[in-house]
Write a protein that binds this DNA or RNA. Sequence first.
DNA 1: ATACCTGCAAAGTGTTTGCAATTGT
DNA 2: ACAATTGCAAACACTTTGCAGGTAT
Lengths: 167, 167
Amino acid sequence: MAKPSSTSPVASLLGGGEPVGNFAANKSIFLAFLVRKNLKLTRQRQAVVNEIFSDNGHFEAEELVERLKKTRTRVSRATVYRTLELLQECQLVEKLDFGTPRSFYEHVFPGQHHDHLICTRCGNVIEFHNDRLEALQQDICANFDFHESHHSLRIFGLCSKCHQQTQ
Amino acid sequence: MAKPSSTSPVASLLGGGEPVGNFAANKSIFLAFLVRKNLKLTRQRQAVVNEIFSDNGHFEAEELVERLKKTRTRVSRATVYRTLELLQECQLVEKLDFGTPRSFYEHVFPGQHHDHLICTRCGNVIEFHNDRLEALQQDICANFDFHESHHSLRIFGLCSKCHQQTQ
DNA sequence: ATACCTGCAAAGTGTTTGCAATTGT
DNA sequence: ACAATTGCAAACACTTTGCAGGTAT
């Protein structure tokens, strides 16, 4: 997985981590959102956003809490949850349900929707995107006069490796 | 929604309710499962199965508990959860996540997989099935050498009625 | 007879919330 | 200055579990 060639000024402004993707854009989306809602850009919120966008994977709330403990900025569990809520509201983060008791989250890169293949043995998650699939779903919605906001396709089963071990 | 033209002998054996779909077949699947696992067909389990298969919709655990209270057979919440677990194991019931805090469940009619359009305003759920969609998913799995056991596509948005009210 | 089951109430688990002190604008 | 925010710990909501008595085969 290639890292971005350079760290954006805004990213370094937030301090720490190794930002991934269009971090600056995401940051300004969040800022705009905060302003619009009369909310404040606190150290804790910066730390959470920074931590989430400094890695590409899916994560659990508890995991994020742990990751943040290794940071200079202390952030309580409550604040982590509250910030995740905000980030979902402005569509920078999506909550995922992989059938496990805890929710997963992932940060969203606008225009880069993908779905998930979830290995029920090893828990590994493969992301994929398929244009024909997306188009087909639009057709289906049109059929029902249903106005989609978002969707989620999860395919559960065994990944290649786990399936081989079954043989 | 048409009701089945006749009540199966097995269904009436379980007592009460108005069975829907191939109730007898489902019942024997459950029985076979119990036998295979050395489990017993208790009054409580019968009542739960009967209640679930006497209606077509999605339901929450708590709702099922309530429905069962109106039945002659008393079934504790614990037993309801334990029986739902068993029914998932033998694939007669699926747990659904519509993004609400509580899980929904629905009974599965073998060979009648469907996906869901979920209205985020009124909570209404539309079921649909699309062969091309299924085929496409198989292609995708093949591409990744992924061995699917099941999948779940949820499309969130506004149903026709709710969308009109927005205008 | 002997597993297996049930109900109860207590324990879990992940997440949310009330409140007093603190902080960003 | 003042409203928003934080951390803490307690509260929550849904679900699971240990145990003593009951039940199906």
